[in-house]
Nucleic acid binder design. Sequence first.
DNA 1: TCAAACTGATTAAACGATTTACCCCGGCGG
DNA 2: CCGCCGGGGTAAATCGTTTAATCAGTTTGA
Lengths: 326, 326
Amino acid sequence: MQPKLKDIANALGVSPASVSNALRGTGRVSAELAERVRAEADRLGYRPGPAGRALRTGRSQMLGLILPDLSNPLFPRMAQAIQRQSETAGYGILIADSHGDRGGQEEAIARMLQRGVDALVIIPRRGTVIETLPVPHALIDTPSTPGNTVSADHRGGGATIVRHLAERGHSSLVLIGDSDASPVQRDRIAGMRESLGEGMTATTAWLEEDGISTCLEAIGRGATAIATTSDLVALQILGPLNEAGIEVPEQVALSGFDDLVFASVMRPALTTLVADSNAIGSHAIETLTAILEGRPSPPPMRVPMTLIPRASTALKTNPRQETIPC
Amino acid sequence: MQPKLKDIANALGVSPASVSNALRGTGRVSAELAERVRAEADRLGYRPGPAGRALRTGRSQMLGLILPDLSNPLFPRMAQAIQRQSETAGYGILIADSHGDRGGQEEAIARMLQRGVDALVIIPRRGTVIETLPVPHALIDTPSTPGNTVSADHRGGGATIVRHLAERGHSSLVLIGDSDASPVQRDRIAGMRESLGEGMTATTAWLEEDGISTCLEAIGRGATAIATTSDLVALQILGPLNEAGIEVPEQVALSGFDDLVFASVMRPALTTLVADSNAIGSHAIETLTAILEGRPSPPPMRVPMTLIPRASTALKTNPRQETIPC
DNA sequence: TCAAACTGATTAAACGATTTACCCCGGCGG
DNA sequence: CCGCCGGGGTAAATCGTTTAATCAGTTTGA
């Protein structure tokens, strides 16, 4: 049996209240008693039981993490970052995914609330609006979403990759994403378009809408670089390119987003952009703990995406170029 | 404010005890009162508060999920399956990862216990032994690990892929994994070796130990198929193969494991094997809930791995072969 | 010198649900 | 007629922790 507060109190011949006060630094306890209590507490390996504490304080010391889809390849890094950050802040993480459908997200949120989480970290489904909730919450979506708490600077990332391609002499680009319906992908493409320099042109395509052929046609008309909104899209395009006899990066440059697990391993290794998940995770957690503990909460944050140049956008004179600091 | 048990009791002019009894079917309550209570309960949208219940019953209705590394690409499917199963069983899932080091696993377990989880699902770090714990736990490792509760039949999977390759006429194979230190990978390779047919030969290699060159040499000596222990390993080998001018599948067949997100998208699409994560997840949860609720717990389970034949092991006469039922 | 303030600690009342022990009442067998 | 039983229900204890209220001494201030 785990030691209770009362066990320490009995062992020391004092009241449970004093023990509680000593351990949490509230109330009035002599320094000497406080010390004795601490000593006895960790001699017995005492940890306050979560149930009793939660009941009394109304706080469960748990955060809910709601994800659109646990099997999204981008998720693990986010979850890991959030879990680690919240752990150091003294909170546990309950997870739930939205089961694919929109109603699932509401349900997931409802379940978390029933379990008594103190706050929620929500990565919303595409274009979902989160109504007002009875607990603080942090939204990780895109900077362009109202109410967003923290997210990668997708737009800035788009700008960065276009500049990168421009530096390498590409002036006719294909911008291609998976689906127009994703705010993240739209932001990335918007950032790309915005920073097209003088004399640069770009065709936009979506895989959903026969993007591959649009892309190949554009290349036929002289495009020399393909900037995608995701490593997965880049990988999907690579096959058809090979079949059409188009070499990457010799004839056409190719870039992705997110640095998924295969990006560094595939051939050619894929140039991509990635945001620091830890930064995103800690800002989300910091925002929530600030609210929970009554501190002023930080303003929304836009985490920059950094370029990881690899072989797929290497200059023709230097086709073996690998990751270099940018 | 959420409605409490007492609110229902007051509204109906009965005692909280009767309400509790009515809702949970314990004690003695007239059918008529039970009905009135239920009606009022869901009129108010009442849900028992977790803190009070946990304090009284000693059960938190939460399970801890401990993973070696949240960023492992195989994890999301497992986590998703486990989360969904446990949800239908009425349990929430707290996650924690082992932070990479071995001590981290102990720590993670300790944290979960402190948070009062009712049971643990543990995917242990390579070769870690889990000592006795104060709560029930399910281990998801390999069938060859003592104490294992449920896992994919890695050995059977190895056998399956070798038979598949044999059917396609390959008799000289390279078996290659990442690291000899992983029980999972060892099991897969063991299964492969065991079912080498008459006249078949195989060279084993590990990426860690300069496996790529061993592999290329073996091909030089006439090997016509490479069976890897992971899609990621397969992808890593594909580059060097291309550079050496070896075509897949025309000259050499290639297979992976786990059907990672890129396996169906890469070129050639990768033949691979995968176990039903839902089956694994539900068996783990079923085992734990059985123990928790005093039912007889099911025996350990070995979930079969099913083959997903794709282009990378296609017959030369049919190079465009895609996913077909097996 | 007396009251006010402070110190160190204790008591007791929460928090919300569950459960044990008991009470009351009507019917029934003896 | 009495004791017993079973059905319907309730009061009260309990789980472990926090905290407001209180108390007995000691100082301090005027």
